[in-house]
């Protein structure tokens, strides 16, 4: 996913869309550790959105350890340390709960959810 090519939709908050696109670009490996990450002004101009919104998304990405700002150089995608084994599942707990809740709202069977998970898992090339 090219961060500059995301198509902003009016149906959900712009901040969430930018954050989601950036996370996806990094986690999918499209942007690799050490790659330059675009500046606030570049992203704001390309997406035609308020630089404050982009700055906020960048702050969130930094807090998540996905992007770092090097003085005099600019933004860069971080090397990601392996999360401690014990902490890994716990980090996903909230997201998993939301996913299961949503699946139950839609009256999906557990097997359907497993199949959908497998499908999405396979879309990322490690």
């Amino acid at each position: 996913m090219n961060l500059f090519a995301i198509d902003l939709k009016s149906g959900s908050p712009i901040y969430e869309q930018v954050l989601y696109a950036a996370r996806k670009a990094i986690i999918s490996g499209e942007l690799k550790p050490g790659d330059a990450f675009p500046s606030v002004r570049e992203i704001a101009a390309a997406l035609r959105i308020n630089p404050n919104t982009v700055q906020k998304a960048l702050t969130a990405l930094k807090a998540e350890g996905l992007v770092e700002t090097l003085p005099g150089i600019g933004n860069r995608v971080c090397e990601r340390p392996e999360p401690e084994v014990a902490g890994r599942a716990a980090q996903l707990d909230e997201a998993l709960e939301a996913l299961v809740l949503r699946a139950r709202q839609l009256r999906l069977a557990a097997a359907d959810l497993h199949a959908a998970l497998q499908d999405h898992w396979g879309r990322f090339n490690d």
Binding site: S10, I14, V40, A44, A45, R48, I49, N50, P51
Partner: peptide, 24 residues
Amino acid sequence: IEFLGEGERTVFLSSHDLGEVERL
């Protein structure tokens, strides 16, 4: 957007255009 990116600028706008409000 370029104007906003140049420094601390305060903008007060009235608008009906939700698309533009959402972006700006």
